[in-house]
Nucleic acid binder design. Structure first.
Lengths: 223, 223, 223, 223
DNA sequence: AATGAATGAGGGTTCATTCAT
DNA sequence: CATGAATGAACCCTCATTCAT
């Protein structure tokens, strides 16, 4: 064999994980999720306006063109990111509702607590929510998706409030108004967490919510 | 007196306006305001990420280079826009507080109503607020300015709640928690207005706030 | 007289010099020279590519539009700056030639010394020369002006060398070649002064020139 | 050996070229060189101040963004261009020194001839040198690079002159002064070539240099 | 499926020039 | 004459997108 052979043999010793990883190339869905996660991290760190596809690819440890390959366009990536965020929230919401037991009071508290739980109410994640909300006015798609989430939240909470009113015979309480108050309050608490992180305290936030529940539905939340 | 005196006396007849405030200075301030107004309109219409300096200049009916002439950079324009927005809010807030009379209950209601008044709670303006909030995590400057506003709001409302508690001897009410609940609620109502404009109704929003006030401070807001 | 009079009287006590300066407004020629001086300073400090009309105006302590008022265009300002620089050099050159006395040897040394004298051979001034030379290839106007200066220099030096050759009967010396060598040497010494200022030393530079004169025209420069 | 071993051995058959030098890396270097060549052409044709990145890209037959892709900034492109120019010069200089044989006299003449050879002493190339020299005063980076080249040149020539002095016992000649004279002369001849191209003649330039060598080192260059 | 070099439209910014004052 | 606000063309640079490999 000539030393001028056109081909060479290269022998490499490498961690086995590298092989498995690159061999069974991550499934399409896995890749998309990986990119969406990277997108959220970037938005949280740099803001939506400063997040580039190159940033996302780098964060994911992949190459330049990868996003367009899997999402066709940046716009679409962002839309899918919001969808993922909303779905993730809704899943937790619905599961919480299901598991919290058994009366409406417990469910209501569980939902309020969910919103303030660190896995949901942390600055990076809130930064992403607010980033999308900041574009809602000029992006009907975002608005629709956010609106849908709100509506679901509100209707569930309103239903629970109605049950409470029925159970407790709170004659003066309008369930819709109460639901509106509660959902607004948690959304507003998110803003505080985002804007004043050092002043923020989960217990104080929960206390604020409880001042409402205790005085509007005293029979259920008497303490 | 020698004609070689080191000093001379100069008498000038000039338009009186020059004395009060340099015309150039005055017009400079007006231009800046004009550009900030245009910026807000653009952010509301196109979103922050899609607002270009060309957009702003066109909206103001001026030429390309005008923004850099008056604000040095886009970043600075946005910062000044936020500052203007915050100052404007604070002015209204303080004036409302001052004029609303005379007890803490009236003042509290006036402040809540202020937040829901169309001149403040309208989608274009809220879009601008949320656009900035959406960048808070990645822009310490924005955070500081927003935080300052929040703190002011909160401390005033907490003070009023404390007065109410003192007057009404509401033993179970923690003024800080109540203030937290109220301010969060109005912020959350802004989000609803932005996201679900067709469902939004000032009266319903006010009703939500009143469910809180009426049940937490029944002696003051009995109705 | 109403206090709302459209005019006001302002009385100012000011240094008399200010008056004289602003009253007999600097003559056109004076202003032009002032601006050309400012231009040279700017080119020396910031380089030609980075010198803006705003820089020049500021350096001269005047206002934005002043350069276009007096020179119509930046191009013209630069051209006039080069012309001034060249004229200034030529004036000194001719005066030196005239005053140095009486033989060609003394004149030659005087011219060489002139080129190395601090009033001519200092970094700021050289920076300006080199800035223009750097554009010579792409600016026929600059080339023409620089060429003219070189030709004058060369012809005078060649004349002096010819006189020396005649006087000293240096049979092997071609006056044109000698002149070429001498003028090139001084130009090259300017480059050294510009590029290696800390290593530069007027005496060493003169010594380099003298090695030439002494060995080519030993009868005149024997030492 | 378990199939769960932490390491794996990978055997790859690949084109041999990949091993010698990454093809991508190689092409990257070629692109950079191509862009630097285009830059020099543009500087020579339009001058440094009028050379835009668009010009360079067009000259290279590539697209707008290409320069920033490979050089990050215009500043960096220019710096690398100067570095390339200086390296290229130095390579030729060192190679000439090495190959010219064997005594200092031959080496000295070879170096002088090198500086006047068309491949180095042609207007386009000189225009580039002078363009950079024109910015030396305001760009420390350029100064450093030019200074380095000068120092190298000077020290080599001074060494050769010292050898000549030793060999020829030229008692009156200071090698440093002679080197200074020679290097200045060639630099000055470059200026003549740039400024007075039609009057310029390689032979006349060489003759000027030889007047020096012949009269300062007569034993070596007697003719 | 993945890479990353290349593209080119469009952004922020600079600045020579104009012009009302 | 002089000012300096305003203009708008043109610059450098970024980045979503494409495509040969």
């Amino acid at each position: 064999m000539s030393i001028h052979s056109k081909y060479a043999i290269l022998i490499v010793l490498m961690p086995a994980t590298v092989l498995t990883k690159s061999r069974r190339t991550a499934s399409r869905e896995r890749r998309r999720q990986q990119l969406i996660d990277a997108t959220m991290k970037c938005i949280a760190r740099k803001g939506m306006g400063s997040t580039t596809l190159a940033d996302v690819a780098k964060e994911a440890g992949l190459s330049q063109g990868i996003v367009n390959l899997h999402f066709e366009s940046k716009d679409n990536l962002l839309k899918e990111t919001l969808r993922t965020l909303a779905n993730e929230y809704r899943d937790k919401f619905d599961r919480t509702l299901e598991r919290a037991g058994p009366g409406p009071a417990e469910k209501l508290v569980a939902l309020m607590e969910l919103d303030l739980r660190p896995s949901i109410c942390n600055r990076p994640k809130l930064a992403v929510w607010f980033a999308f909300w900041g574009e809602v006015k000029s992006r009907p798609t975002y608005q629709r998706m956010c609106d849908e989430r709100d509506r679901h939240y509100d209707s569930v909470v309103a239903g629970l409030c109605a049950e409470l009113v029925a159970q407790g015979a709170y004659k003066r309480v309008d369930p819709a108004a109460a639901a509106n108050a509660l959902t607004s309050m948690t959304n507003g608490l998110w803003l505080s967490c985002l804007i004043s992180p050092q002043a923020w305290d989960k217990n104080k936030a929960m206390a604020a919510v409880m001042t409402y529940l205790c005085s509007v539905f005293p029979k259920h939340f008497e303490q």
